[in-house]
Design a protein around this nucleic acid. Structure first.
Lengths: 193, 193
DNA sequence: ATGGCCATGTAAGGCGTTACATGATTGG
DNA sequence: CCAATCATGTAACGCCTTACATGGCCAT
């Protein structure tokens, strides 16, 4: 049950409408708990139902169906409690690593070239994400001050560390595949087609 | 759709029954795609239905309801195709990082001590997992030979890299929290209770 | 007025999680 | 015989994903 608390966190920083939340998720909280607008609307409904948030009395001339929500004291309490809870980490599930594991069994010959392209493509994706994180870090946390900023910086460090790890690992993997291809060529010369 | 392919991979290495697969998952393929026995039975049924695997004619005197499965050529083809597919990485979802993000908003005072314990607990979990990975690496891949072993080693390296990252990050986080506590005490002296 | 966008929402399906159910085998 | 364990399976629920639906607003 992390999504409702992610939403509470975002709403505490700034009361927002559903779509606004969706957009804000895309560039901060969503880095570690992404959510689509459908998920967010659903959770907003549940949170309101549960009495943790409420719809803000419309200040602007209620144009559109736009609804802004704010966190109630009960919601803040629930969030504080959740932060202190004990929760096991979710198990890792990574399809790319799994595919390499499968390639260890079926070989990299058949669709192996496709695998190489995949590794390159993923490296590019991680490169971009890392660049985005670094940009944010430099823009918002160049000089670290209060606890709030330090904790947010720490979150960003997690992203930077993760992306850096994947980049390194993908380079290892690409090197490995290249070696494999050499072996394959030798095998080929000896008869495997 | 990674689980069926994870199962195909495991079955290619060695035809097995459902529970046997579950146990083998726990110490290799499951590191990057864990599955419970319920998931595995469900998928075995589907894979058989789809004609990708088949039940082995029982060699041992059919004691118990034990059923062993093996991969059919169609299953192997499907796995090879999947290895070469293009798939975007799954988005990261990490509740612990999210909780630190929430703590940045509600502060670490209330349930903050609980958070510190959580960080220590998670560090211990990651330390153990890393130790397990390293043990396997030393036992099975001390000297690297063929492509199969090199790829499996690469998968293990992903696990080692990930766990190492988390350990480093958790140390950063713990240091950060400690700093925060100091600040808090100062604040306390100045009046915040 | 119409096409495009903003904003909220409904519906269906898949996977993962947890709890429970069933039958066979083995050990005391 | 009974309990524990092995092995397979059913059921229910929740979250996430994707596609689609609705209605208001705005610019051409």
């Amino acid at each position: 049950m992390s999504l409702p608390h992610a939403i509470l966190t975002a709403l505490l920083e700034k009361p927002s409408s559903g779509l606004e939340l969706t957009r804000r998720f895309d560039k901060s909280i969503g880095f570690f708990w992404p959510a689509t607008h459908q998920q967010i609307y659903r959770e907003l409904g549940r949170l309101e139902e549960a009495g943790l948030i409420r719809e803000l009395p419309q200040q602007q001339p209620a144009r559109g169906g736009r609804k802004e929500y704010e966190v109630l004291p009960e919601g803040r309490d629930a969030l504080v409690a959740w932060v202190g809870e004990s929760q096991d980490p979710r198990p890792v599930r990574d399809a790319l690593v799994l595919r390499l594991r499968a390639a260890a069994v079926v070989g990299t010959a058949g669709a192996g070239s496709g695998l190489g392209d995949e590794l390159l493509r993923h490296r590019e994706l991680h490169r971009r994400q890392l660049a985005e994180y670094r940009e944010i870090a430099q823009r918002d946390f160049a000089s670290v001050a209060d606890e709030r900023a330090r904790l947010q910086h720490l979150v960003l460090q997690a992203g930077i560390g993760l992306e850096t790890f994947w980049l390194d690992w993908l380079d290892q993997a690409l090197a490995q595949l290249a070696e494999g291809d050499l072996d394959e060529e030798l095998d080929g010369d000896l008869g495997e087609t």
